[in-house]
Design a protein around this nucleic acid. Structure first.
Length: 104
DNA sequence: CGCGTGACGTCTC
DNA sequence: CGAGACGCCACGC
């Protein structure tokens, strides 16, 4: 019940991420009321059906790195999508959180 | 009901 | 600064 609402919150937050911006698991977790549930957010996104159209490639970890595992398709795919949306990448392959981090 | 696992985060060595 | 360990939340068995 409340848990389903939590999932709905996560889906809603991710869906609200604008193009050219990225959000971190901790940020989303805090939005849904689970500031320590960053793992839960990741688990939720893994459980979320892709047909919902959630830009999971815009969800990254606190370090600014993309998903360590090619869960949604592949690291390169994520980078391509983000770059296509205007997200800047650093030489180390990380996202420029200073400019592309989603600030609600 | 209890244990194990996982797209993470933060602290400490 | 880098790597490792512990901790948190939710689900599956």
């Amino acid at each position: 019940m409340s848990q389903d609402f939590l999932f709905q919150q996560i889906y809603d937050v991710v869906a609200q991420i604008p193009s050219g911006k990225v959000a971190t698991y901790g940020q989303i977790a805090d939005m849904v009321g689970r500031p320590r549930g960053a793992r839960t957010v990741g688990w939720a996104l893994h459980s979320v059906p892709e047909h919902l159209g959630l830009p999971c490639h815009r969800v990254i970890n606190q370090s600014g790195e993309l998903a360590p595992k090619h869960v949604f398709g592949g690291y390169e795919i994520q980078r391509e999508l983000l770059e296509s949306e205007g997200v800047k990448f650093e030489s180390n392959g990380k996202v420029d959180l200073e400019k592309c981090l989603w600030c609600p």
